[in-house]
Computed example of a mutant assay.
Amino acid sequence: MRGFSMVAEFRNVRRLDIRGKIEGLYSKTRYGAYLVFKLGKNIRGLGSANGIIKFVKYDEDVDAEKRATIVYLQPNKDGNGQTAVWRLDGWMEIELGKFYYDLRDNGPVEARLLGNNFNTKVDIIVAGIELRMRGDTREFMRY
C-alpha cells in the first residue's frame, strides 16, 4: 500500500474513535478525507459511525460532531449515509467528509471516525486517513 508505513489492527472493539490531524494544506483548496481500512472476520453487528471534519483552531468537538456525516463501513441495506467502497489495491475506503481550506483557516484540520456503539465486538484493520484534493466548491463545507 502506497503512503502508509504501518497499519493498526483493532480486535473485539465496540466503539472506535480514530483521528488524523494535518497542517500545511494548500489554501483555497477543496479536500476530501477518506478512512482506508479492511474488515476482519468478526463484523456482525457493525453499525453506523460518524465521519467528522474539524478545524482545530476554530471548532469544538461538540460543534464538529453536530455536522458529522453518517458512514457505514460495510454495505448498508437502508441506503442512508456514505457506504464504504473497494479500492483497486484490495483495501476499502469511506469518505469521512469534505471541506474547503481557505487562507483564514491557517491551522490544522482533523478528520475523525467516531464509531457508534456496535451491537457486538468487531475487528477492523486501519491503514490511515487520506486527504485528497477535490472538485467543485459548492459541495463543500466552508469556514
Rank of each mutant, 00 (worst) to 15 (best):
V71Y: 03
K21S: 13
D102V: 11
V126Y: 09
L96H: 07
E95N: 08
I53W: 00
I52Y: 02
V62T: 14
M1G: 15
G51A: 06
F118P: 03
I94V: 15
R138T: 11
L113W: 08
K54Y: 07
T137K: 13
R87D: 04
L73F: 13
I22W: 03
G79F: 00
V109L: 00
W86I: 09
G97V: 12
V13G: 08
N116R: 15
K38F: 04
R112H: 08
G90N: 11
K21A: 11
R44C: 04
G32Y: 04
R15D: 01
M6T: 12
Y26K: 13
V122K: 04
N12Q: 12
V126I: 12
V109T: 05
A49F: 10
A68S: 15
L103K: 14
E95A: 03
F140N: 03
M6R: 15
G79M: 03
A111G: 10
K77S: 14
F4I: 05
T29N: 11
V13R: 05
E9P: 07
G115L: 01
G40H: 01
R87Q: 07
G51H: 04
F118V: 07
A111E: 01
A84R: 04
S48Y: 10
L39D: 04
D59V: 06
F37N: 04
T69Y: 00
D78I: 09
F55G: 08
G107A: 01
R14I: 04
V7T: 11
K38N: 14
A84T: 05
L35R: 02
D89Q: 03
G115K: 09
L16W: 01
Y143I: 08
R132I: 05
T120F: 15
V36H: 10
Q74G: 11
V126P: 02
V122E: 01
E130W: 10
K121R: 10
